[in-house]
Amino acid sequence: MEQLVQTIALGLLVGGILALAASGLTLIFGVMDVVNVAHGALLILAAFLTWTVWREADLDPLLTVVLTTPVMFAVGGVLYFAALRRLRGTSPSMTVILTFAIAIVIEGVMGFVWGNTSHAVTPEYFTKSFRVGGLFFPKGQVFGALLAIAMLAILYVFLTRTWLGRAIRAASENPQAAQLTGINIAMVAGLAFAIGVATTGAGGSIISVLFTFAPGSHVQWISRLLGIIVLGGMGSLPGAVIGALLLGTAESLASVYISIRWATAVPFIVIFAVLLLRPQGIMGTRLREDVA
């Protein structure tokens, strides 16, 4: 029983961190109708940046968030204006192929810069844990989860309380109507993409402490993130949070009770099950598709 509670608790902590990374992916999908396959690669890129800052400047990896978030925001803006913007209005398959290409380029570049070996960021609290009763909570995961929740809260406030945030949500719900009310859809899409990518900044900094990573691990991460947003309902922010908590817990349970090797299959099984049984996910609603 204690093991079960422990497993679930760790799963929820990881889930909180996954939620942050997935929120960016689902935001981009919601506003732009683009599945950003490069999201995993950007996450790993942020993790490598964190690693370098931690190595060179000895800055705490979680504090690096203040650096990685704006940097990734800029990366997202550049990607949007240099590449994705040109594909507005074309078939979704082309945007998938494009972001896939971007992911592969980033993987190659990371291989050149940091080498194709496993990296990990190990601050001094890396091996320490809080103990509550019989349960232990690794400090890295607790700090990481708290930071992720804080970032999610900032994102939430931005989207609901500011004009720009409301413009983004309007564009996500009905681009044409939003345009008619004077919202510059191209700018809003670019902003949403940049913000979506910015979440990988904080996300990457956090996961650099909790997981080992290599340039090639982006594939595993994008699968995980896709699993989450598919489960939560593509385009839904609350859905991404719920999906992340569920998936984090499921992976944690699978690795303890089945085997750690099969745990990697969990996101895929989730993807298959959800897309076939409830394609709109948990929080997605099925609206009238225009078949007229």
């Binding site: 290409a101 380029v105 980033i106 570049v109 194709n116």
Partner: peptide, 12 residues
Amino acid sequence: NWRLVLSGGLMA
């Protein structure tokens, strides 16, 4: 890594 950058870059 070159293969990755080349194939991805060409594709983009």
